[in-house]
């Protein structure tokens, strides 16, 4: 088993993300009831499931926006979010977490762009203020990222002047500029008008083809079947079924999985 604060010099076979027996309760309510996941470098994992199944909570635990009630998470062989104090594990606070979060990119359902900054400033603020990169270099990289998501012509626009799809793409560029090892997508297209969903999925598809490690929580079954290496179906805080998209999405073994899928595709 992996040890705590050692940076791994493992071979490329070691999983990038490792989650063991994750539990999360909000007061009385247990939202995650023992989740185990491993994601290899370059793998695309899609998580599907009904609302309340815990998939968003799971994602938010990975970058420690939610602190797990129990269980451990390793990224690249290093235990994250906790430190060992004597015999026990203690959660890190937001100051200590900041360092670890640099390597994890999180794309929110509601974009959460900074409204007082232009698109370019949104993308460059973290490289400049967190990584200490010089403004000129950060701007160059920022423009490159915005170009990559198709918004090179909108660098100086404020978020309120951008459509939902454009805002989400800026949010993705913002994450890319930090060059994360792992990218997490929390229902990235759920808050978008239907005609704007395509442009964001297009960007996500490109990123997948570049070999990035991605964990995507989504309702877009078509997208999941095209892009993911593995699909996980979650319900009531547990993983019910997991496997390659061809297996799960067309030929699920569990009743609940099939019920959920037929509900979604019937819509």
């Amino acid at each position: 088993m992996q040890s705590d604060k050692t940076t791994s010099t493992d071979s490329k076979d070691a999983p990038l993300l490792s989650i063991r027996d994750l539990h999360k309760s909000f007061g009385e309510l247990e939202v995650l009831s023992g989740v185990d996941i491993e994601v290899a470098r370059g793998e695309k994992l899609c998580i599907i499931g009904p609302s309340g199944s815990g998939k968003t909570t799971l994602l938010r635990c990975i970058n420690y926006l939610e602190k797990p009630t129990s269980g451990h998470i390793w990224i690249d062989g290093t235990l994250i979010g906790e430190k060992k104090v004597g015999d026990r594990y203690v959660h890190l606070n937001d100051y200590e977490l900041a360092r670890e979060r640099r390597e994890i990119g999180f794309v929110f359902q509601r974009f959460n762009l900074f409204p007082h900054l232009t698109a370019l400033q949104n993308v460059t603020i973290a490289p400049r203020k967190v990584l200490g990169i010089a403004p000129a270099e950060a701007e160059a990289k920022g423009k490159e990222m915005l170009d990559k998501v198709g918004l090179g012509h909108k660098v100086n626009e404020y978020p309120e002047r951008l459509s939902g799809g454009q805002q989400q793409r800026v949010a993705i560029a913002r994450v890319l500029a930090m060059q994360p090892k792992l990218m997490l997508f929390d229902e990235a297209t759920s808050a978008l008008d239907p005609e704007l969903v395509g442009e964001v999925l297009r960007v996500m598809r490109e990123l997948a083809q570049e070999g990035r490690t991605m964990v995507v929580v989504t309702h877009e079954i078509q997208f999941a079947s095209e892009v993911s290496d593995r699909v996980i179906f979650m319900d009531q805080g547990k993983i019910v079924e997991e496997g390659p998209p061809s297996a799960i999405l067309t030929n699920a073994r569990h009743e609940r999985t099939r019920a959920f899928l037929s509900q979604i595709t019937d819509r």
């Binding site: 390597e103 990119g105 007082h116 603020i125 967190v130």
Partner: peptide
Amino acid sequence: LHRGQREAALSLGMTPTKAMAYIILPQ
């Protein structure tokens, strides 16, 4: 301010202080 602003800032690796200084307080 929407809680999401703070979360976005923290997710990018900002410490709470930086998040307050660059994102929360200006708004």
